[in-house]
Simulated assay, not measured.
Amino acid sequence: MEFDTGARLKEERERRRLSQRQLAAATGVTGGMISLIEQNRTSPSIATLKKILVGLDITLSDFFATPEESGPKWCFRKHELREITPFAKRGETEGGVNFRQIGRPGASAIQMLYETYTPGADTGPDLYSHDAEEAGIVLSGRISVTVGSETQVLEAGDGYLFNSRTPHRFQNPGPDDCVVVSACTPPTF
């Protein structure tokens, strides 16, 4: 089943009885951009979607959540990882970034992600921040990580740990795909 980012955004906005103009004023994202996203005519960067979701008071993982079975679960197979990629549509990883979450959103005090970045892919031109701490280990490839004003290129086996309130960005300088396993607490992303 394909995830419809535009329809989900419109549903959340209307649930809060906000017009596109009101949401734009609350988030700093233009009404035109919100309209294009809701019509699936453009795919938002992570930073843009985060701004919109903050205005809607919903986390990224909750935004991409789907109804699931209730009850505790501790083991998750590869096919059970939940895709929470903001710009994915029609089964593609538009922008070359793919985030897959382990477990149900909100079911744990930690959020674990399996991240894949194709060469040249990044989390968007703007640095973004969220109210948490995050850490990760590069499994393969290389990733350029900017935290505040500092940028480092990390390779397989390298890791990072920082306060996510500091604006940050991830970009794959290539030439190969990059795979990162990361954790965020509390789950705000």
Rank of each mutant, 00 (worst) to 15 (best):
E2T: 11
F3S: 06
F3I: 08
D4E: 13
T5W: 07
L9G: 09
K10R: 15
K10P: 01
E11V: 06
E11N: 10
E11D: 09
R15Y: 05
R16Q: 15
S19A: 05
R21L: 13
Q22C: 03
Q22Y: 07
Q22A: 08
L23G: 07
A25W: 03
A25T: 02
A25V: 07
A25Q: 12
A26M: 08
V29K: 08
V29I: 14
T30G: 14
T30Q: 09
I34T: 08
L36P: 06
E38A: 03
E38S: 01
Q39A: 06
N40K: 02
R41W: 00
T42Y: 01
P44K: 01
S45D: 04
S45P: 10
I46A: 12
A47W: 08
T48V: 15
T48Q: 11
I52H: 03
V54M: 13
G55C: 09
I58Y: 00
L60I: 01
D62K: 09
D62P: 01
F63E: 04
F64D: 00
T66Q: 14
E68T: 14
E69C: 04
E69T: 13
E69G: 10
S70M: 09
S70Y: 09
P72E: 15
C75A: 10
E80H: 01
L81A: 08
E83C: 15
E83R: 13
E83N: 15
T85V: 10
A88L: 03
A88Q: 11
K89C: 07
G91L: 07
E92W: 08
E94D: 09
G95H: 04
G96M: 03
V97C: 03
R100W: 04
I102Q: 06
R104Y: 09
R104T: 12
P105T: 05
G106I: 05
A107D: 12
I110F: 13
M112P: 02
L113P: 08
L113F: 11
L113E: 03
E115S: 11
Y117R: 09
T118A: 11
T118N: 04
P119M: 05
P119V: 01
D122G: 15
T123S: 14
P125R: 14
P125C: 08
D126A: 11
L127E: 10
L127H: 06
L127P: 05
Y128E: 11
S129Q: 12
E133L: 07
A135N: 10
V138D: 00
L139W: 08
I143H: 05
I143T: 06
S144L: 06
V145D: 05
V147R: 06
S149T: 10
E150N: 12
Q152G: 10
V153R: 04
E155K: 11
E155A: 12
A156R: 00
G157T: 00
G157A: 03
D158Q: 02
L161I: 09
N163P: 06
N163M: 01
N163H: 01
S164D: 01
R165C: 12
T166C: 09
T166W: 04
P167V: 01
R169Y: 06
V181W: 05
A183L: 14
P187C: 04
T188N: 00
F189A: 11
